[in-house]
Amino acid sequence: MVTFFQQLVNGISLGSVYALIAIGYTMVYGIIKMVNFAHGEIFMVGSFLGLFAVSVLHFTFFPALLFSMIGTGLIGALIEKVAYKPLRNSPPITLFITAIAISMLLKNLVKTNFLAGPNPHSFPEVLSVDVFHIGPVQVSYIQIIVLLTAVILGALLQYFVKKTKTGYAMRVVAYDKDAAALMGINVNRTITITFIIGSALAGAAGVLVGIMYPRLEPTMGTLPGLKCFVAAVLGGIGEIPGAIIGGIVIGFTETMTKAYISSSLADAFTFSLLIITLLVKPTGLLGKKTFEKV
């Protein structure tokens, strides 16, 4: 029973990591209906920016987090301006391929010797990695921080999208771009802001996950990117609370599969979950049914 509770903690902790990355993913999709395949790579870049801030600029945790968020936000805006904006009216397949190319680009750019190089780097301990015990079950501070960050950022984002003027503009753009433009909403600006926020969230996740799992390499964003995408789809892509729930569900499933079924089949289970979700409820747990406009 103790083991089960420990595994529960492990699952929620892993799930909160996925949730953290998935909220940015889902937000971008929710507004511009585009799968930003490069999100996992922006997360990776965020991790390296955090490392740069800590080890080269000697920042402490919070300035480093901010540095990374600003950095990834700018990179996200740049990618949107250069690569995605010219394709806004292209078929989704073109955008999807471009996003894959951007993800390849970021990975291989960081891999060059001018930047991080292909070898793994370690992250200095800027946050306490101490553990405390709740009965026989043990939890580390960083696990709590990641979970809290995911929930708080998710709540803030939800508030931002639902209650602020910019958020309102975002939702209008999501509903109908042309009509939004006619209503005097600056569509380009709104989409850029969406990208900046989404990427900054990935940057924040990058720093936190870098501290939690201190092994940084150019390919570190690929697998989490895929799994968080699964999480976003599972929770209902475009729904911010859905991303958090989806992330936790995925983390929980993965951990429980490893703990009680087979550690070598865990990934197969995760991706099967994706396919099953799409078959049973393509809109995800919290998604709403949409109708295609003709």
Binding site: T3, N10, T222, L223, K258, A259, A266, D267
Partner: peptide, 20 residues
């Protein structure tokens, strides 16, 4: 006997089993 896949960075589930 536990395993994981390339690119994974969380091993808590496997390690908890091992600790047992």
């Amino acid at each position: 006997e536990e395993s994981y896949s390339t690119g994974e960075s969380d091993f808590n589930a496997q390690l908890t089993n091992i600790k047992n």
